[in-house]
Write a protein that binds this DNA or RNA. Structure first.
Lengths: 118, 118
DNA sequence: TCGCAACATTCTAATACTGTCATATTACGA
DNA sequence: TCGTAATATGACAGTATTAGAATGTTGCGA
């Protein structure tokens, strides 16, 4: 029963299922950042940043690199950015669909007929 | 400050953050299915399937189509399959990395000297 | 209208996640 | 070695998710 694979995938997506973690990954798109830099850039508490980094790290989405007393994080696989991009595109399309429905309603109210390709 | 956009994205990923929901989406890849068909195919309780479908539906990932007493679900946007594919690819790559580390360890144990505690 | 089939919703107990606060670890320089 | 900066971890209360059981709702045929 490859139940485990779905669980792993689910954990993967769950790792991205938090606004702060999305923002962290987004910030890392420009390159690696130290914990302090992330904290400053996102305006979050130190423990919160460290905890969320811990979640992303545990799921293997980011890798730490120690340098002196600082720890620099970078995404382990650039594919994670594709995930964000696709999610964004899906969101946009969803908005468009809602807009289409609204327009359709408007058109109907205005007395027009039907016009609906893709 | 588009904090809300990250929240929406996070909700999006959170919707995929459960093994049962991953399996449902996966099953819908072949085409629309009724609740009963999903239930049978995944071997889950009726209320569980309905609940998880409710989550996916609330997040706009799937659309219902009523026909008689049955409700057929289909994914709202095929891009969701890309998400699954990318997650799969990331998982594979992660395995590969772990394998590489294991091999490296093996090589070191096989005699290639290095600093080692006792 | 009755009764059933197909889904949806509600309730509850267990579990998981979150932010806040406090404390611990690590690396470095004096 | 001591002190401090940079991170990590632990404990806690509040909230959210989950599965399972029970109950509601809807559509259709007799």
């Amino acid at each position: 029963m490859p139940n485990s694979l779905e669980s792993i995938k689910a954990d993967f997506f769950k790792a991205l299922g938090h606004p702060a973690r999305i923002r962290i990954v987004k910030a890392l798109r420009a390159g690696e950042l130290s914990v302090g830099q992330i904290q400053e850039e996102l305006g979050l508490e130190q423990s919160v940043v460290s905890q969320q980094l811990g979640v992303l790290r545990a799921k293997g989405l980011i890798d730490p690199r120690r340098s002196g007393t600082s720890v620099y994080y970078s995404v382990a696989d650039d594919k994670v950015f594709e995930l964000l991009d696709i999610a964004r595109a899906m969101f946009d399309q969803q908005l468009q669909s809602l807009q289409a429905i609204a327009d359709e309603d408007d058109a109907r109210q205005d007395g027009l007929a039907e016009t609906e390709p893709a």
